[in-house]
């Protein structure tokens, strides 16, 4: 049976200006190697869709079994000036749950 990222990890999305931060944390620290090995910026970018222009940074934080992605949106796509319904972009990160491991 196939497993998905959403089976092993939880995601929190935040925003700062035109940056989106997405933390992906394993429920069980034993899955961290699997997560860190699988969740590349390139793969995440494909699932996040076109609202994310680029994934600028990817941090591995083994101590807290977390991969942190820092993503760039368009310059005017900030919480104050965005035309999207979800101005913050808070719903973006949940797209990663569908990544097949």
């Amino acid at each position: 049976m196939s497993r998905f990222l959403g089976d092993i990890a939880h995601v929190r999305t935040g925003d700062k200006g035109s940056l989106t931060t997405i933390s992906v944390t394993c429920y069980n620290a034993d899955d961290y190697a699997l997560l860190a090995g699988h969740l590349t910026s390139e793969l995440a970018g494909r699932y996040l869709g076109k609202r994310i222009v680029a994934i600028e940074e990817r941090f591995e934080l083994p101590q807290i079994a977390t991969v942190l992605l820092v993503c760039r949106r368009q310059a005017k796509d900030t919480v104050n000036t965005s035309l999207y319904l979800d101005r913050h972009g808070k719903t973006l990160g949940s797209a990663l749950y569908d990544i097949e491991l």
Partner: peptide, 16 residues
């Protein structure tokens, strides 16, 4: 541990 880690990393653009 999980609610705390989510908040620890919330809107962090450089954990270092």
């Amino acid at each position: 541990r999980h609610t705390v880690i989510e908040q620890l990393m919330y809107e962090i653009t450089d954990p270092h």
